[in-house]
Amino acid sequence: MGMLKGLSTSMNAKISGNAGAEVIVLAHGYGGEQSIWEKIVPSLEEKNQVVLFDWNFSGAFSEDNNHSYDPIKYDSLDAFANDLVSLMDEMNIKSCVFVGHSMSGMIGCIASIKRPLLFKKLILIGASPRYLNSEDYEGGFEPSEIEQLLSTIESNFQPWATAFAPIAVGTKDPLIAEKFEKSLKKMKPEVALAVAKIVFLGDYCHVLEKVETPCTLISTTYDIVVPSSVPYYMQKKMINAKSRVEIIDVDGHLPHLSAHEEVLIVLSKELYS
């Protein structure tokens, strides 16, 4: 690829695997970093090119003044979608399969509307367009719960991360919870709060009908963050995209960590069938 510059440097972007093959872009979610994908990367690299990177809110992001986290610039998921498109352009990627976890799911949707030709397919893991409940929508949280969550992140970020990681991961395996906890705790508390506000107070339901890229929505049987009705709601709203829902029979918000073999089965069905 030669020397990459700008965004790709600060976002620690790297491309590996089978040169000339399909490009798969893996985008981590809130509290994550690219190492969260490590269990599925080796299998994907056998037949594809794999792109990994760290979002600028991640604790693994390389600080650089041009691209560091500015809460005024990053006031919605739109700014991250712009970064994603710019990163792809800088890496000279003309088309990709985008795999986005959690908040990256909606970032991928927004980016695909901006640049449809760049995205062949969207594969979203634990994505949600809105976390607040309303009369006709189950987002998973009441306004008071979100208020409480944000004030805890603000006042007690580290203890909150310790408590949240195992619940989010939803597995009995302490090593998996510990991996996510470490990654979460690397975030700067003020950045963690700013991003949590964008995620938990945002409403991106209106974006779904504009998506035209084929989309697979991967969900687990029980996810503390995203109710199981959400992927079906998203599918119903994606009136212009061919979409389908895949439910993996495990608990938790990070199946690529806790049930990577099941995730790989879904991915290979999407990539090779």
Results as ranks from 00 to 15, higher is better:
86 S>P: 07
87 L>D: 12
89 D>R: 14
89 D>Y: 09
90 E>H: 00
90 E>L: 04
93 I>L: 07
93 I>N: 06
93 I>K: 00
93 I>C: 02
94 K>R: 10
95 S>P: 04
95 S>R: 15
96 C>G: 08
97 V>H: 05
97 V>Y: 05
98 F>Q: 01
102 S>C: 10
102 S>A: 10
104 S>N: 10
105 G>T: 02
105 G>R: 04
105 G>S: 09
106 M>H: 00
107 I>F: 04
107 I>R: 01
109 C>R: 07
110 I>T: 07
111 A>Q: 10
112 S>W: 06
113 I>A: 10
115 R>S: 14
116 P>K: 13
117 L>E: 15
117 L>V: 05
119 F>H: 05
119 F>A: 05
119 F>D: 07
120 K>D: 15
120 K>H: 12
121 K>N: 12
122 L>V: 06
122 L>N: 12
123 I>P: 03
126 G>Q: 04
127 A>Y: 04
129 P>N: 02
130 R>Q: 13
131 Y>E: 04
131 Y>F: 15
131 Y>Q: 13
132 L>Y: 08
133 N>R: 07
133 N>K: 09
135 E>M: 02
135 E>H: 06
136 D>W: 09
136 D>C: 01
137 Y>E: 08
137 Y>H: 04
138 E>W: 02
140 G>D: 06
143 P>G: 07
143 P>Y: 10
144 S>T: 13
145 E>L: 12
146 I>M: 02
146 I>C: 04
147 E>I: 03
148 Q>K: 14
149 L>C: 08
149 L>K: 14
